[in-house]
Write a protein that binds this DNA or RNA. Structure first.
Lengths: 190, 190, 190, 190
DNA sequence: TATGAATGAGCCTTCATTCAT
DNA sequence: GATGAATGAAGGCTCATTCAT
């Protein structure tokens, strides 16, 4: 038996939570998927809430670190932003279910939701820094960097989910081309 | 007695659903907020699900019609898109709670969620049409209009929500300026 | 408008109660079937219980009076019993739904159920009297007349319902022949 | 702790269901009677319906098997029928509450009721077989065996219940004597 | 470590009954 | 006489959590 119980549960939780969302998912579901007794989950995680929080934390960290590790200091801002766009699109394709969770569970006034937004914010900050750098070096126009970062994150996220949850195949290349164009030059020809 | 029970319930439902989300909201909550007996809700709406669906339908319709009625056929596409950006930003400020609901409950595989995405799609189509018109007349670059529409909708939505749920005041003018710039010319100075 | 509201409700109640039984039937069902407002029922009957009681009373009275009026004093007991058997079989065929109600709602410790059994007992007494008369004149064997009356009532009732609720057609003639034989000579050939 | 929770619940369910009938009985009632939490019932039985079905299944099986196991192939049909009459009377005395349930809940068009009638039919078939055997060997008169079986079952059932729910004591011996006489020779002296 | 039986608070929904019109 | 909107008590069922083993 290679897998520890903890990671079995973790994997099962991702499956179930993304399939059903936080509220509709039950600990029974997760236990069954992980092939452990329900009590065992409580041995490894304090509560449903904690399990969920842990899971989302890991997910966002995966996205943030994945992008951050590829952002080399010497890259020009333009290249950095291009990389972010590409990576986020790729991440959404790869972790579709997690992304559904993220977009679903981050809005509202509960502590958990505030917590999630904080995590997302830590990712947005990456974008924000790049935008600021670009503005400072004169390659980017002057905008409110926070708004712009949120906008770019949202643009990619919603477009990606729109496709992933629709019927069309998820063509990363086309999506990347269009999202890059929108972010860089906008729609106007002139 | 000015207010009909139905509209009392309707208002209370918006409050509660946006505060707690569909699953956590209870019919008791809504009844209490509306100052009616729980049974009264069921006299006017068949179920929690139906009440919710009705509410979201109305909300999206309000957004869509509000925008559509202002889009005059003779406007140039550029002006149309500008109007859309402005209106959507205004709508989010005005119906913050409803918008939280919308962004929260539209992702996932349940029928209800699929239904919501269809409604959102009907709004996105407005944007899509304008983009297509712009591409045809040569003022907009050639992109996948569906992706672009989803992207613009997402950009505005997430940026708006980001502010609305944060601590800063919701400055529509600034947000409008930046979102318009992003949509039209993108970030690059050149 | 020939029909009084009262009788409209009465008819609807028979339909609904026999279709669904006392507990599953709702006042809404009955009101809808009778094409009156729900409040109207309460104008004519004090409660669901009372409506039901009234209805069962009428039904049993119909059976009892129907039989009693045909039992002429000068008939020999044997002929009387034969008539009872025939009439009860006919009644079950004609008022199948009501008979279902009767057999369904008469057993248990509630007041209503006790009341129903009293009504049934008033019918059984007809049978009991005939049996006693037959024993007195020597044409019937000596048995506990009360038990025998209950037995005959049950034999016909259950056999009739068995057929009526099964798939076979309700052949009154065959049933009558067999029930009469069982009651008069039993199964033994000798 | 001798009693398993399951059998505690089972016993409580018999009590409550026979006291109040299927519809009026509540899971709260049963839980209270069994001294378990309501959730515990649902841990052992999927639903109220299933609990009830299980209970009735067991009961009829008890009756059927009890009788069947005593019916030796070499017995003459007359002796077999006598045994059936005796056993059924005994069973009704012993499981009065269950018998109330049975007679109460078997009539109507719901699936559950149809299911119950099927179970009862399996018992009636025992009687039917004996009657057919008797007709074949010439000791019983020729009748519709199905009707006759239903009739005998009903005769005993209703007579037994009539006594059990009345005020008189349940004298099995007298009842047996009379029911046997009715089944074998009928009421006529000649 | 791991289990799974047991718990009980909480939720959606139904429906007999009332009452202002 | 008649209506139907409104009520609120009650019931079936779910599920996160606990705990004895």
């Amino acid at each position: 038996m290679r897998k520890s119980k903890t990671s079995l549960i973790f994997q099962a939780a991702i499956d179930i939570f993304s399939e059903k969302g936080f509220d509709k998912a039950t600990m029974d579901d997760i236990a069954a998927r992980a092939n452990v007794a329900k009590g065992t989950i409580y041995y490894h995680f304090k509560s449903k809430e904690e399990l969920f929080l842990f899971l989302v934390e890991e997910g966002i960290e995966l996205l943030r670190e994945g992008v951050e590790s590829k952002l080399l200091p010497e890259m020009p801002p333009r290249e950095k932003l291009e990389l972010i766009v590409r990576e986020q699109i790729h991440f959404f394709g790869q972790y579709r279910d997690f992304c559904v969770i993220l977009l679903r569970e981050s809005w509202g006034g509960e502590d958990r939701q505030r917590e999630f937004r904080k995590m997302i914010r830590s990712y947005m900050l990456l974008i924000e820094e790049v935008i600021k750098e670009g503005m400072d070096t004169g390659v980017f126009q002057r905008v409110n960097a926070e708004y712009a970062a949120a906008g770019i994150f949202g643009m990619i996220s919603i477009a990606a989910l729109h496709i992933l949850l629709g019927h069309a195949p998820y063509d990363e290349e086309v999506l990347f081309t269009d999202m890059k164009r929108m972010a860089f030059t906008g729609l106007l020809t002139e």
